[in-house]
Design a binder for these strands. Structure first.
Lengths: 228, 228, 228, 228
DNA sequence: TATGAATGAGGGTTCATTCAT
DNA sequence: TATGAATGAACCCTCATTCAT
């Protein structure tokens, strides 16, 4: 599964040296934790230090911060797909499967998706896009099942839910992941209760998608450029 | 009301110059938006640029980042108190008052409270503390009324709600406030639906407070220092 | 005596306002102490603070740091001339008069001449030059008398002595004037003992003058420019 | 001998790269001259420029100004120890050995010890302390010998002499080392003549030590803090 | 005139990135 | 390939100087 996450490795099936592969994995792990704890702006030297390699080694594996963010984001989404797939397979009630995914989001470290929402990720990059489609697909099947079973309100979309979860499990800036612990499971539960059918009040507007957000971001960015 | 938010201004009744007052307000506004969009670590030069003043002018009004954070946090809380007080006075149903406060949070920019949870804020500073008590008091009276009226679930606390709202209306990093528009009102409505009595499922743990979060943040920071 | 020390004041005999004159004196006093304690690079705002005036008032009286340095240097030299003249008049033995001037140099704050030796003073400026000539004259008469009396070695010049004194009473950088107290009077006494006739060993070279130093400084500066 | 002066180099026998060692030496040399010419507050960028390296390279070798001051002070003291030891070994007359050390002080650049008296040096740091003890020991043995031989006045201490020498060979601020040439050897000779036995006049007070100066400096600094 | 306010330039320091071993 | 070293740009903050009241 990790094998699909490659930057320079396994180009044309070229097997990379064992120690190089090990370094790559250690860098990704270190980066994931560092992103969660310090945000996407953490010094790369800090990541190198955590991984126990020289800073230039980080650059060999990931030419810049974007590439590193990309690697981490792909790894996290793969993990999420795994969790969701398993939940869907093991839970009879689709709403329960969704709940499990949401509640578990702290454990599979959806928080490491933070940089995905920062300026450092390119959501349109093909592999990111494809992986996100696969994640969406499994979440969507949960949602469809739960709506059909009458346990999930029908006016929400898959991105509605994923975005709300991502917001709620996002650590406060400069605070680190632990700062969420006292609240996050309560917040997620409030959200799940709000998602239950029947809907207590209608939601304003229609279900938007991540693309809508991206459009806004791009607009905002261009406005910012103009201002300068 | 804003008059209580002063750092160097109106000390001992000394009227400050009109242009200085104007600059101070512009800096606060710029800082508020910049904190929301980029977090508490945004370069002060960026804030100066947005405010249309030289960087040293920022330092004249606010001797360091802490002072600037303090000014923004105080201003936001004052605004929130105003909104909440008015809602409480005008709405017959206390849950409706709470809903109005929550829905309006995008307008009074609760997101600017983010830096309050960073290392740059001192929640124990007297004026901050007093203002927070006043805000808590009015929110708490909403909550108490709504619980008494049987419209709000009884297992939530005031900080539960404020924190969840703050998370949901926080813009994506580097994205700007507008990026939330497609989602934010839906998310807030989902939250409000989840807050309705009767509670559909129990919340895990007991209602925590901002202090619990602060404690975690400080612990994390000290752990970070230790590691180095 | 102070009346000769003027920058913009008493232009064409125009009497300045009493409060302006008072401010000017306070600024000079504050600058003198600040220069002694912190060196010629002390912030002008600090001087304004000590003088109890606004910073712009300093600029009104002294358009830039050079002018302020000039004012202080002139005042100190005037004081030195006074001390020397009096010593010459009161002491029968000219070497004793010289000793008194040297020993007293700490009191009349020759240390405030520090900035004269920094990049901030222009020794060729007419009034500075003239005042220095007057000081040299009185010192020279002491020296001539002492040499004639056979108590001062004959191979020293007036600038030899003044420079050595200035060096010995110069506070250590960043240290302030008090740091000298434990040593300075011993050092000055060692110097005076070394000046006694008969000379125990000949001095290398001939007696140089301040101008020789200036020539070296200018050469060094031009070399520095070239290097860049 | 220089080998004992290391900060990061040769830790646990780890050989550092040749170019890094070269840079380190060039930075130390440049810093030494810059300290002599401009004092301990000279911009580090200026030092980097003189050394022909980027400013960040200075920071790599010396994490802050204190470390750089420490490196320079250690190097100078080592050099002084070398000169003094050799003089003591080669000169039969101990006063002559002392004279040679004093006259040579311009060459071994005792002036670079200035920052030792600023806020940037920590005289209690173990290696500094130990090196100073070694320097004191050799100077003291000169002095003891010369006193015993009846050629040095008995009321002076080792720090008396070293401090006076340091003062006399200190270049004028902004002037560069060369500006001293016309005077410095004459001043040093005057001092040596004043040091000869028998003493022509008694010295005021008792022989103080560097520690006395440090105490004054620290007191002055604290007073300065208090005033603010 | 005296003053508080504004500002641009510069110094200290960190960090992403490139280079040389 | 992996690494320590080097560097320039950016940020925070201070200060000399100018401006507006």
């Amino acid at each position: 599964m990790q094998a699909t996450v490659n930057d320079k490795s396994t180009v044309a099936g070229l097997r990379q040296r064992a120690d190089a592969a090990r370094n790559r994995a250690r860098i990704l792990d270190a980066a994931q934790d560092a992103f969660i704890e310090h945000g996407a702006d953490v010094p790369l030297d800090e990541i190198a230090r955590r991984a126990g390699v020289g800073n230039a080694t980080v650059y060999r594996h990931f030419p810049d911060r974007r590439a590193l963010v990309r690697g981490v984001v792909l790894a996290v989404m793969e993990r999420a797909i795994g969790v969701a797939t398993q939940a869907l397979a093991e839970e009879a009630d689709p709403f329960e499967a969704l709940s499990r995914l949401v509640r578990d989001s702290v454990n599979w470290k959806i928080g490491a998706l933070c940089p995905m929402l920062s300026e450092w990720a390119d959501l349109d990059e093909p592999e990111i896009f494809a992986t996100r489609e696969r994640l969406d697909a499994v979440v969507q099947s949960m949602i469809d099942g739960a709506k059909a079973a009458g346990s999930l309100r029908t006016d929400v979309g898959s991105d509605d839910i994923m975005m709300a979860v991502a917001q709620l499990v996002r650590p406060f800036p400069g605070a680190g992941y632990d700062s969420l612990q006292p609240f996050v499971h309560r917040h997620l539960q409030l959200l799940l209760d709000g998602l239950r059918a029947p809907a207590r009040t209608p939601l304003p507007g229609g279900p938007p998608t991540l693309e809508d957000v991206r459009r806004e971001c791009i607009l905002a960015a261009s406005r910012r450029e103009t201002r300068q």
